[in-house]
């Protein structure tokens, strides 16, 4: 394979990762790292650096459309970023103290569990009423968005902001420890605890993961993990994919279908993490 062909292959996979990431609110790192290391034989240190770039590119590429369309709730995002950045800071410290193995096992378990809870919510026929919350009112977190697939403006109320904050701290810690965007933890936290509609949860997660990843990107750059030859095509491909997904797909997809896709990817990520924890 020539370097030129290599770049085209990386570009192609990156478009796919950006497309999927923009719909599901995840960074796509968990898709790209195996492709780069196993299929293309890239050294793991550059694969991880490319993954961080992919998280930021997915986030910024998709959020431009999501913020303008008010699909992403910027107030919820800003409030929760308090916890994700604090978590990312402490996670970076804890990574020295706690072994990677335990982290993988615990979070593989947490993800598998949240996948099953999210699956159960898919069957729930009537939406239970969202309990009122004084803090959510004070923070003015409630919102609405236009759902093309339903052909109407959907308004929603947010609840349990403090539970969300706690869960985001955990998600931020995982990001700091494992160097991932951890959108796979953020989406269930917003969907299950705070009761945001799934599309709003994934779009808001998308908006947030860029900030979480940017917090650790400086370290990766300083360590020399970001190789322009590999991260360059990833950056371009992921941005194109995220742009396509956020502008042309998100509004049209059906929420039930999106939930099924998310649960599937979540289960796969959970198994991958459990496997890693088991093997290490």
């Amino acid at each position: 394979m020539t370097p030129f062909l290599f770049m085209l292959v990386v570009l192609g996979f990156s478009v796919g990762a950006g497309l999927l990431g923009s719909l599901l609110g995840i960074g796509g790192g968990l898709i790209l790292i195996p492709v780069l290391t196993l299929l293309l034989k890239v050294d793991i240190q550059y694969a991880v650096g490319a993954s961080i770039v992919s998280v930021i590119a997915t986030s910024s590429g998709a959020a431009a459309a999501y913020v303008r369309d008010r699909m992403a709730n910027t107030r919820v995002a800003m409030f929760l970023e308090l916890a994700t950045t604090a978590g990312a800071l402490s996670g970076a410290y804890m990574s020295g103290l706690v072994g990677g193995r335990g982290v993988y096992l615990v979070f593989g378990g947490v993800m598998a569990w949240s996948a099953l809870v999210m699956l159960r919510r898919m069957r729930a026929s009537a939406e239970a009423p969202v309990p009122a919350d004084a803090l959510a009112d004070r923070l003015a977190l409630h919102g609405s968005y236009w759902d093309e697939s339903q052909g109407r403006e959907v308004s929603y109320r947010v609840t349990r902001p403090l539970t969300g904050l706690g869960l985001m701290y955990v998600a931020g810690t995982v990001s700091g420890m494992l160097g991932i965007g951890s959108g796979a933890l953020k989406v269930p936290a917003m969907d299950l605890a705070m009761r945001l509609p799934l599309k709003v949860s994934t779009a808001t997660s998308n908006f947030m993961i860029g900030v979480t990843a940017a917090a650790s990107a400086g370290v990766y750059f300083a360590r020399g993990n970001i190789d322009p030859f590999i991260a360059g095509p990833v950056c371009v491909g992921v941005t194109l994919g995220a742009w396509l997904g956020s502008r042309h797909l998100m509004a049209r997809v059906n929420s039930t279908w999106l939930r099924a896709l998310f649960v599937g990817v979540l289960l796969w990520v959970a198994l991958e993490m459990l496997r890693k924890g088991w093997a290490s």
Binding site: V53, I56, A57, S59, S60, T74, M78, E81, G210, V211, A213, A214, A217, G218, F221, I226, P228, F229, A231, G232, C235
Partner: peptide, 23 residues
């Protein structure tokens, strides 16, 4: 060439931080 690519990647990393500053 690779230095320009790297500069582009650094711009990408700076975008989320600038977004928070703008907010």
């Amino acid at each position: 060439g690779q230095a320009f690519v790297m500069a582009g990647l650094l711009v990408m990393m700076a975008v989320p931080v600038m977004r928070v500053a703008l907010s």
